[in-house]
Design a protein around this nucleic acid. Structure first.
Lengths: 227, 227
DNA sequence: GCGAATAAACTAACGGTGGTAGTTTTAGTC
DNA sequence: GACTAAAACTACCACCGTTAGTTTATTCGC
């Protein structure tokens, strides 16, 4: 009916309900009408609180980013900070895999996503990494995290054994069992990648930064040029 | 118009036109009616050739997978094979970034994607990697490639400088310039990650496989536990 | 305290979406 | 030459995001 005595909707209530709907039924299940129905309301009412549907999804995405640990860059050496951040970043996204495609488009204007980028970049530069490299490392970690949270690698394989019988796939005889080991495969692959990347970066760090943490500035452009 | 003397549609023509539409206008622009219009036809006619829209997108995704070099696993040592495969995999996806979210859900039943998984897994196992590790490496590479092709890291930052002025983001003063260096940043981050991963894996390889390529089985659990 | 402005719900509607049913005509097969 | 299958069509269906305009309650300025 018309304006109620007590407001039925809050930004926060909309965000929470949307997140719940996304988690339980997937991104496609979130229509303005369905979300509104879940809230006991009528669709267009959402537009009193958000300019459009995308803004709702943005708010959900930013909410999720709040669970990521970025304090570690102030308290740990950079390799450990990358480890802690990377794991909490992945855990936050993997808990809500259905919005990862939306989230992975970048921080955009989401304040918490920007704060995360700021902490990572700042921490790496403070540790002595050249700015362009710090950018690369941040990007690379996002690749790993988003790629791993985007969709389960293991679940991507159909669990119907018949598919893999074809002689075209001589090595996939056991692939139908992957889905059952989803968690182990995805987690294990991420950990393997995280450790490999950090180990590889430590070698690069020695080469590039060497022993001196405070390098004379001006030798490395802040604009990420490479030619 | 009833059945024409010469068929207006072909599976291949639909795939090609859909790919073109995706590349030029994005995934959202692909509706059955728009795609049909581009083909000089009326929407429902597509359903004579594909069971639903998703099958069309699947076919486009598989077409793109055809450009990936998987022969390298037969001709190169595993570290070089990973390099060649990874680069061509990423190049194929980055050429069509708009379908990556669709593609990244896994091989499903797409034959070329399955053939790729088969070649990678087979190649790594033949090189001496334990099966569980081979699975992890394949997953890990997909994370890196899909994460990097999914959406440009650099383009994810708004190019409006005003956003980054806030004192909440003390290190992002130059972030608005990222978009201009998109290609360099994305490419550089991927290369950094690829090399770091391979270097890290080579260390693991020495530890796990050692000099002997044929290790007695049973010493390595298939579950990648770390505690 | 009162009038004006704002806020928060609603109904109705627009154009677009994926998909289905049923029709017509052609092409190919026994 | 009769039958079947294929490939286009028209006409829908229910749903989608969004806008416009309405109604009523609250809040703010004087």
């Amino acid at each position: 009916m018309p304006r109620p005595r007590q407001a039925l909707l809050t930004r926060q209530r909309i965000i929470d309900t949307a997140a719940e709907l996304i988690d339980t039924e997937g991104l496609d299940a979130v229509s303005t009408r369905r979300l509104a129905a879940q809230l006991g309301v009528r669709g267009p009412s959402l537009y009193n609180h958000f300019p459009n549907k995308d803004a709702i999804l943005d708010a959900v995405a930013d909410e999720i980013t709040a669970d990521v640990d970025i304090g570690c860059f102030a308290t740990h050496e950079w390799p450990d900070a990358l480890r802690v951040w990377g794991r909490s970043y992945r855990a936050a996204l993997a808990a809500h895999p259905h919005i990862v495609p939306h989230l992975a488009r970048g921080p955009g204007r989401r304040p918490r996503a920007l704060a995360m980028a700021d902490a990572v970049y700042g921490g790496l530069v403070r540790a002595g990494w050249p700015p362009a490299r710090a950018t690369h490392i941040g990007a690379l970690m996002r690749y790993l995290v988003a790629g791993s949270a985007l969709g389960s690698f293991a679940r991507g394989f159909a669990s119907d054994p018949a598919i893999y019988i074809s002689s075209d796939y001589p090595h996939l005889g056991q692939a139908h069992r992957l889905a059952a080991h989803q968690h182990e495969v995805d987690e294990g692959a991420f950990e393997l990648g995280l450790e490999a990347v950090i180990r590889g970066l430590q070698i690069t760090y020695e080469e590039v930064v060497g022993g001196a943490h405070h390098r004379p500035h001006g030798t490395e452009s802040s604009a990420p040029t490479r030619r």
